[in-house]
């Protein structure tokens, strides 16, 4: 039996009918066409499927799609336009924090959840925030540097505009 799911995805009101057992990741990728969130382990271990639900990080592979009814979902596609990357994305490019790129959407979402809540984070807080994201290429050092760099830039910007 299918149930109506009404969600705001990356600012767009979206309605689909889904079965109770389906994961948010599956519905995002198959029904809504957002393939930015990745299926890595499908078991909440790797974080490649990370999205934000009402601003909180969620492993979308292990969250029931219907439980997001009436809520706000942000995926990597909603973070920026390709022509104007988010500070986190730009910093990942500049620091060499991306290699194969499969984990990157999840890394960006976890980092965004951190920086939205705590823009003046330190290295320990960055490492803690990325604790649920696996990367098998970079060795993490460059990712951590990139998130710290993005944090600095966001703070500078807040300082000059506010």
């Amino acid at each position: 039996m299918k149930y109506p799911l009404n969600v705001r995805v990356n600012g767009v009101e979206t309605s689909v009918d889904v079965e109770p057992h389906r994961s948010l990741l599956n519905v995002l990728r198959e029904d809504i066409g957002l393939t930015g969130p990745k299926e890595g382990c499908d078991d909440s271990e790797c974080g490649a499927c990370m999205v934000l639900v009402d601003g909180r990080p969620v492993n979308s592979c292990s969250y029931l799609a219907l439980q997001t009814d009436g809520r706000e979902i942000t995926t990597i596609e909603g973070v920026s336009e390709p022509s104007c990357p988010h500070s986190i994305q730009q910093a990942l490019l500049e620091e060499g924090g991306v290699q194969c790129g499969f984990c990157t959407p999840g890394i960006v979402m976890s980092a965004k959840a951190l920086l939205d809540a705590n823009p003046s984070c330190d290295e320990d807080e960055v490492r803690l925030a990325l604790g649920g994201n696996l990367c098998r290429c970079t060795g993490y050092q460059k990712i951590v540097r990139a998130v710290l760099r993005a944090a600095e830039q966001l703070q500078d910007r807040a300082g000059t505009t506010g």
Binding site: P20, H21, D43, S44, S62, Y63, L64
Partner: peptide
């Protein structure tokens, strides 16, 4: 089911089947 971090993960990992009736 509340956060789903046990129930859904266990079902997806094949530890048990997803229940027929879910009360979220």
């Amino acid at each position: 089911v509340a956060g789903g971090t046990d129930l859904v993960v266990a079902a997806r990992g094949g530890k048990h089947r997803m229940p027929e009736v879910l009360i979220a």
